[in-house]
Write a protein that binds this DNA or RNA. Sequence first.
DNA 1: TTAGTCATGTAAGTGGTTACATGATTAG
DNA 2: CTAATCATGTAACCACTTACATGACTAA
Lengths: 188, 188
Amino acid sequence: MNTLSYGLLALLTRGPRSGYELMQQIQPIWQAKHSQIYPLLALMEKRGFVHYVPVAQKDKPDKKVYSITGEGLDALREWVPEPTGEPVKRDEMLLKTYCIGLIGSDQARRLFEDRIQMYRGKLEKYRRMIEELGSETETAVTEGHIEHPCFGSYILLKRAVANAQSDLDWCRWVLELIHLNHIGSVEK
Amino acid sequence: MNTLSYGLLALLTRGPRSGYELMQQIQPIWQAKHSQIYPLLALMEKRGFVHYVPVAQKDKPDKKVYSITGEGLDALREWVPEPTGEPVKRDEMLLKTYCIGLIGSDQARRLFEDRIQMYRGKLEKYRRMIEELGSETETAVTEGHIEHPCFGSYILLKRAVANAQSDLDWCRWVLELIHLNHIGSVEK
DNA sequence: TTAGTCATGTAAGTGGTTACATGATTAG
DNA sequence: CTAATCATGTAACCACTTACATGACTAA
């Protein structure tokens, strides 16, 4: 049982889902491909943490709809309060930033402009997702209704927005510095 | 040549370093253990991107001091302007947050308080590192001197501080929500 | 005397990505 | 007619972690 397994169990606490749906819904929280998820689900089923019912579909391939079992819920409840591992972040951009002086300021500008575009796209996506949760959810959560089924989703989205915004602001600040440098070198 | 290799090359643009020093200095930018770095350095040496001189030490084990070669610098200059891969973040805390309703509010509080402590520690560390760079560096960088040897380090530290601060603020906000919930349930 | 730092390496195992494989339906 | 979505799976590979291994010096 690795971290991803607990992530899948966490999603299943909201109701039954197919492997395909789990694969899509885990993405914003934990990046994983279907090739990692399908074998894991099979393993978890063998160990009794989840079970599935095959569902035949017309016009679409058949699917397996998974649910969390009592055992699975117990395991999840035990795991959540345990000491949390340090977050792991890997971003090529940090390495490139470290040696940004190696390339011309025009190329450097492109690099950061591309990043800004990426963060803008993410921010829009998150804002759409918050809208989808509805304003009733928003007021319920900000009043402290932890038991609301969307509590987790909402506060995670808030965090994602704050992170993207802070990284975007940083990119803009670096662009300003590059601009200052360019002006300085022209004046010479 | 994977991403970590370019990270090591990036560090070596600042001057020669031993494998051990590289291992320590890459940590804030890219997490990697010595067991991954030493074989990589050997491979990069075989391919001509770096070379080393063995340095004998008294009172300490001997070491290999690596430098970047012309070939290595060329490879790095080619890599930096290339399209940048999406950042990967994996944080157990997000999964736990998603199903925070499963545990009691006292346990939930502990989880977030521990995190706040972690971020506080990180922030202090980053602030010490910025201090070490010196206030002359700070003014030089904020005036846009990209060519300054500490430019990359400084702007990366600024980003790390902003990230930690935004995550810390989020944790505090979640604690407030948990507190609101607790008060609400007591009044009932 | 125990733990920590410096310093390098290998071996085994886990976690994660890419590619291979199939196949029907739908939208541009 | 091409690409995307739905849906599941396996195989090979790469990236990363943990554990094994050694050894001298230093500070609590």
